[in-house]
Amino acid sequence: MSNHTSNPQFQDGLDPLEESQIDGAIRDVRRISDNTSTELSWEQRILIGRAAIRTFEATGYMRLPNHRADRIFVVSSLQRLAYHEADGNSVIDIAQWCMEQWLSLLQRSSEDSDALRGAGQAWLARTQTALARIHRTEGSSSSGSSGRPHSMSERVSYSTAEEARDAERAIMEADARAHTADYVEARGTLIPAVDYFVRAVELADRDGGLTGELLSEAAETNMSLGNVEYSQNQEQYFTRAIRYLRRASQIQGFRLSPYLQSYLDDYGRLID
């Protein structure tokens, strides 16, 4: 992991035993992050993940000045493990530890796009519980997979007064739902998620590291927030999402998911 110096200590101040422990913990994280493997049950993965965290804490690994790429991998992998359930239920201790690591990385460098993305993913994962309840209650998702962005209806001319009244009634009903507890909770976690993703995109773009994956995640997060916001606030999020998707679709070698491509095809014409 690190190079030997002329004395028994490593450059990072680790002794050989600590070096070996950290290497083993990183290997364990790689093993449990392999979703294609059926070797380990989910419960076993959780136990291994917690043991790895104890090693990282005992050795001070997460505070070392080097090995940034490995640390990003470790925290990202453990965060995916913590939010294994699609409805947002988490392994609380692992999820909390991961968020603490993102914030620690951002304290060192507020312009770390990977840490910003990781924090955005954490807030987005927390939102899934409220979005799942909204889906069960209404029978249609209010996450990124939901339907037409209401605010864009202003850009479409209606052929009859009846259609215009129907659209106005739909907006009023959506705003009434936006008052309910699940929508309020969803906004409370999606707003910081969007903020982190927006900053991550800006910095990755500035530094030449912008990817289609990051743009897609950022777009879906904005779409999710747009779908639980009040009608007067929605358009900014849908507009940003379309621009992210358009940018992602132009990256050579990257392809949007069928859903996101369909969303861009349907609504991209409404956004300059």
Rank of each mutant, 00 (worst) to 15 (best):
N3S: 09
Y61Q: 11
S140L: 14
D23T: 11
E154Q: 13
L17Y: 13
A181G: 08
L81I: 06
M1P: 12
N35Y: 13
F238P: 00
V228E: 04
H4P: 00
A164L: 09
I94G: 07
D114W: 13
R126F: 11
R169Y: 07
Y237C: 02
W123S: 08
G209M: 12
S216N: 03
I46F: 14
E18P: 00
R187T: 03
S146F: 01
A241P: 03
S2I: 05
A164F: 02
S143F: 09
R240G: 00
A132D: 08
S146N: 01
A82C: 09
G208H: 07
G24T: 01
E18S: 10
L203S: 10
S41W: 08
R169C: 01
R27P: 03
R206F: 15
Q234S: 01
T36D: 11
H179L: 15
F56M: 04
A193I: 01
M223T: 02
V29Q: 12
E202V: 12
T239S: 03
Q250Y: 10
D114G: 04
R63I: 10
G120M: 09
S143T: 11
R45T: 06
L264P: 09
L260W: 10
V194A: 12
E217F: 00
I92K: 15
A218T: 00
E173C: 04
F73P: 05
A51K: 11
G60C: 05
L264H: 02
S143L: 11
E138N: 04
A58P: 06
A51H: 10
Q96T: 14
N66E: 15
N66H: 10
V198M: 08
Q128R: 15
A164I: 09
A170F: 00
S76G: 13
R63M: 06
N227G: 02
